[in-house]
Structures are given as structure tokens and as C-alpha cells.
């Protein structure tokens, strides 16, 4: 139990909070057909993070967060600009911007020798979920002990705050997000600016991406923006239910993925563990595949089966 608390729990928390923060926001990205905005944002923040690091000379978060946020906002404006000015479809405009920003980040990293200190591209992609430790924990009671809890790694606390913030924003702006996602024209005539709401969404996506990014890596972030929401989308036609299901799926992937990564190979008789971030994303993907095949109403196989039966009945 002690080992679990000290080594596994912080990683599980990290993975789960990251999954939850991204998974909830992802619902709106998927509904707005901006699923790849998550992908884009998690790439473009790299140069911002590097610059933030260069300015502050440490990997603690605030300057990096600010840099990342700035990079995200600049990129979104750039995409919009290219799309409008050049009359280019948004996918291509995104492609131009996110590859360029990521390339800039990569070159900055190598140029400045930051590569030696905690920051490198592999880290940015894969994260380092397993390095989170809570060595002060000795028993389950510590989970209720404020002082002990405060000794959890900074990243865990940070992600917790971010997840909470996202939850609050979604609850407060639920109506506005729903309206602007469904019918931006009506929103405009009712005085809810779709532009402001989309900017808010993008900023929240950037915040989630950056907070999760340093802990779990960009690939898990991208997966979590999409897979839980897509899974929920297969299962329901009600937005509030969709949000709830995506939250559950995020939790399941976070906890289940970590356990599979840490103990899966052991169960198979090997003495190593695999990338937890990777495994969480794979788990989320697997859940989505299940939903796409077997969802009660919209699943591929379910529908085939129903068609067959109604054909037989006739």
C-alpha cells in the first residue's frame, strides 16, 4: 500500500486529471468540428514553453504557462488570418501553422542548449508521467491529511486546479458554449459573440494542453481531447449526458491505462512496464473502438444486427 501511495497514486492522479481536463473540453471541440484544434494547440505551445523556460531558467510553470498561452493565441490568430486572407481551407491553414510553430520550438530547443535541462522533444511528446512521486505518504489516512496532500508533486496540484477551473468554466458557460457551437448565427443575433466564446474555448484548451503537456506529453493530450468525447458522442444524443459520459471515459482511461501500463507486462510474466501516457491514450482509443462497434443506437455492429433482424422479421 505504501508503495502504491508513494509511486503509483501520484502518477494515476496526474494521468486522470490530465485526461479529465482535456476530455471534458474535447466535447465542444468535437461538436464544433475542431477536433484537430487540440492537436494544433498541443503542437504550437512548444515554442512558447521553450521561450518561457529561457526567460525564467526553470521548469516551474508560470512563465512557461504564459509563453504557451501566448503561443496558442498567436497561432489561432495566424490560422484565422491565413484562412481568411489566403482563402485557404482551415485544415490546411492549421497544418501550415502548427508544423511551423512546432519546428520553431524544436529548433529553439536545440539552439539554446535547453535540451540538456529537463526539456527535450521526446519529453514533450511522451511526457514523464512515471516520475511523479509522493514519498511522504505512508498510509491511506494521508489522503485526508491536508499537510501531506500539499506535499504531492506540484504538477499534480497544478493539474487539479486546472481541472477544477475547466469544470467551473464549463458549468458557468454551458449555455453559451452550447448555443455558439450549435448555431453561431443565432448566437450573434442574441448578443452572445461566437468569437469570444471560441476564443475562451481555445484559451481553455491551451491551458489544459500546457498543464497536461509537461506531465503527460502532447500525444496523450491530443488523444484525450478527442477519444472520450467521440466515445460519448456514439452513446448519447443529449449534451449534458455526453459531457458526463466523456468524464467517466476519461477517468476509466486514466486509471485503467495506468494500471495496464504498470502491471500489464507483469501479469504476462515480463518484468518491465510500458509508457503510461501511451497506454492511457491506447485505452481511450480502445474504448472508442468499442463504442463505435457496439453503441446501442449508433454502433456499426449494432446497426448491422438490427438491420438483419428487421429484414428477417419482414
Amino acid at each position: 500500500m505504501e508503495i502504491f501511495l508513494q509511486y503509483d497514486l501520484p502518477s494515476i492522479l496526474l494521468g486522470t486529471f490530465a485526461a479529465l481536463a482535456c476530455g471534458l473540453l474535447g466535447n465542444f471541440l468535437v461538436l464544433r468540428r475542431q477536433a484537430l484544434m487540440g492537436d494544433t494547440i498541443s503542437h504550437v505551445v512548444l515554442p512558447g514553453i521553450v521561450v518561457g523556460f529561457l526567460v525564467s531558467h526553470n521548469t516551474s510553470s508560470l512563465p512557461m504557462m504564459l509563453g504557451a498561452g501566448a503561443a496558442a493565441v498567436v497561432s489561432v490568430m495566424l490560422i484565422e488570418l491565413i484562412r481568411r486572407l489566403g482563402n485557404i481551407e482551415s485544415g490546411a491553414a492549421m497544418g501550415v501553422v502548427f508544423t511551423t510553430m512546432f519546428a520553431l520550438g524544436v529548433v529553439l530547443l536545440e539552439q539554446t542548449g535547453a535540451a540538456g535541462v529537463h526539456l527535450d522533444v521526446e519529453h514533450a511528446l511522451y511526457g514523464n508521467l512515471e516520475s511523479a512521486l509522493w514519498l511522504e505518504a505512508t498510509s491511506l489516512n494521508d489522503l485526508l491529511d491536508w499537510h501531506k496532500l500539499m506535499l504531492l508533486p506540484d504538477e499534480v496540484k497544478q493539474l487539479f486546479v486546472v481541472t477544477l477551473l475547466i469544470l467551473i468554466v464549463i458549468v458557468v458557460f454551458y449555455k453559451e458554449f452550447k448555443l455558439t457551437s450549435f448555431d453561431p448565427l443565432l448566437a450573434t443575433t442574441l448578443g452572445f459573440s461566437p468569437k469570444i466564446m471560441s476564443l475562451l474555448l481555445i484559451v481553455m484548451v491551451a491551458v489544459a494542453a500546457v498543464a497536461a503537456f509537461t506531465a503527460v506529453g502532447s500525444i496523450l493530450v491530443i488523444a484525450m481531447f478527442i477519444c472520450p468525447a467521440a466515445t460519448a458522442r456514439m452513446l448519447t444524443d443529449k449534451l449534458s449526458t455526453q459531457l458526463f459520459i466523456s468524464g467517466v471515459v476519461s477517468l476509466l482511461s486514466g486509471v485503467g491505462g495506468y494500471i495496464l501500463a504498470a502491471f500489464g507486462p507483469l501479469w504476462l510474466g515480463y518484468d518491465f512496464s510500458v509508457s503510461a501516457a501511451g497506454m492511457i491514450a491506447v485505452t481511450a482509443g480502445a474504448l472508442q473502438v468499442l463504442a463505435m462497434l457496439f453503441a446501442p443506437r449508433y454502433g456499426i455492429l449494432t446497426r448491422r444486427w438490427q438491420q438483419k433482424h428487421s429484414a428477417l422479421a419482414n
Partner: peptide, 19 residues
């Protein structure tokens, strides 16, 4: 609009009142 959006008829009418 996207007719596949998770909203009911009542939801859509309610949106008219959001203002």
C-alpha cells in the same frame, strides 16, 4: 446547422430565449 448535434427540440427553442 448540424442536425446531428446533441440537442432536443425543446433545447433548440430554449436557445431562442438565451438572450
Amino acid at each position: 446547422v448540424d442536425w446531428d448535434f446533441p440537442a432536443t427540440a425543446l433545447d433548440v427553442v430554449l436557445m431562442g430565449l438565451y438572450g
